[in-house]
């Protein structure tokens, strides 16, 4: 009985504290640019040391007229580029990957991933999806009270950043991380790249890929 209570309490605490979800494949991760051997475990994303980051898929909320303005488009381009630069910098400096960015949209299916990966000479493709939402209005905040905080819970559970890594060898997704909590569309909002990529395995060092 005591154990069950402790487990329930732990579950509630984890639920309250969780702001990110990570998923990784159980299947072996296969590189394509070198012959994998050595001490790294078969399921490690570090076996894909050469990566490309595709164009960031950005979702922002606004009226259609506003979305057509040059300022809106320019702001979108700035957000996309800054986020991608930050991801590339983190993967290279902190995780030891060989990463470059390409101005192509994410490949659609497994076959497209394989084709793109082989064409680009990389072990894997990184797709990034970022979502910014309008800050809550006073009306929305008041209605949240009457709706028993359900909109607030939905907002806390909404994904603001999703990073996915696909391997070239099979085109499958091998790793994915989602950062949760609505992110307001403002210049001060910065996605948590460190939190998203912090637990990723380092790339297999160059000395072990000869």
């Amino acid at each position: 009985m005591k154990t069950r209570m402790q487990c329930t309490a732990a579950f509630v605490l984890i639920l309250l504290a969780s702001c990110a979800t990570e998923w990784r494949t159980d299947a072996p991760v296969k590189p394509t640019t070198y012959a994998a051997s050595g001490p790294v475990s078969a399921g490690s994303v570090g076996r894909l040391p050469r990566l490309v980051v595709t164009k960031v898929t950005l979702h922002r909320e606004a009226e259609e007229a506003e979305q057509a303005t040059p300022e809106w488009q320019a702001r979108n381009a700035t957000i996309r580029n800054e986020l991608r630069q930050e991801i590339v910098r983190y993967l290279v400096e902190q995780k030891g990957y060989e990463v470059r960015s390409i101005d192509e949209p994410p490949p659609g299916d497994e076959q497209a991933v394989r084709a793109a990966g082989i064409r680009l000479g990389v072990d894997g493709i990184v797709n990034v999806e970022h979502r910014l939402t309008k800050p809550w209005s006073t009306g929305q905040a008041i209605s949240n009270i009457f709706l028993l905080n359900i909109p607030l819970l939905n907002a806390l559970n909404a994904v603001n950043l999703r990073i996915t890594i696909h391997e070239t060898a099979t085109g499958r997704t091998v790793w994915m991380k989602e950062m949760k909590g609505e992110m307001p569309d403002s210049p001060k909002s910065t996605p948590d790249v460190k939190g998203a990529l912090g637990d990723l395995e380092n790339a297999l060092p160059a000395q072990l890929r000869r």
């Binding site: 475990s41 490690s44 902190q94 995780k95 912090g198 637990d199 395995e201 380092n202």
Partner: peptide, 22 residues
């Protein structure tokens, strides 16, 4: 290479697999 860093949970998961691999 850069050192392998991760959260406590990341290091400890799967009976410390990241520690053993690293």
């Amino acid at each position: 290479p850069p050192p392998q860093c991760a959260s406590h949970e990341g290091m400890a998961q799967n009976e410390g697999q990241m520690v053993r691999n690293t």
